[in-house]
Amino acid sequence: MSGGGHGGGKRKKHEEHEEHENHERWLVSYSDMMTLLMVLFLVLFAMSNVDQTKVIQLQEGFNQAFGTNAVLQGSSSVLQSSASDSAGLDLAAGSGPAGQMTESEQALVKKAVSAAELAKAQTRMLAAEAEAQNLTEAEKKIKAALKKSGLEGDASFTIDSRGLVVTVVTSSVVFSGDSAILRSGGQQILDAVGPTLKSLPNDIEVDGHTNQLPVPTRNYPSAWELSTARASAVVRYLISNEGIAANRLRAVGFAGTKPLISPSDVRSVKLNRRVEIIVLSDLPDDTSSLLPAAAKAI
Rank of each mutant, 00 (worst) to 15 (best):
M1S: 12
S2M: 07
G3R: 14
R11C: 05
H14E: 12
E16K: 06
E19K: 06
E21H: 09
E21R: 02
N22Q: 06
H23N: 02
W26E: 08
Y30V: 06
L36G: 13
F41I: 12
V43H: 12
A46Y: 07
D51C: 04
K54T: 09
V55I: 02
F62S: 02
G67W: 02
A70K: 07
A70Q: 09
G74P: 07
S75N: 07
S84Y: 04
S84A: 14
D85T: 11
D85G: 05
D90F: 06
D90I: 01
S95M: 11
A98G: 11
E105Y: 08
V113F: 11
V113I: 15
S114H: 14
A119D: 15
K120F: 15
Q122P: 04
M125S: 14
A127W: 10
A130H: 07
E131Q: 10
Q133W: 03
E137Y: 07
E139N: 09
E139D: 06
K148I: 11
G150H: 11
E152D: 15
A155K: 04
S161K: 15
S161N: 15
R162P: 05
V166M: 01
D178W: 03
L190N: 02
D191F: 02
K198L: 00
V215N: 10
Y220E: 03
S227L: 01
R230A: 02
A233R: 03
I239L: 01
E242I: 00
G243Q: 01
G243T: 00
L249Q: 00
A251H: 00
A251I: 05
G253I: 00
F254G: 02
P259C: 07
S262T: 12
S264P: 04
S264F: 04
D265L: 07
R273H: 15
R274C: 05
S289R: 14
L291D: 10
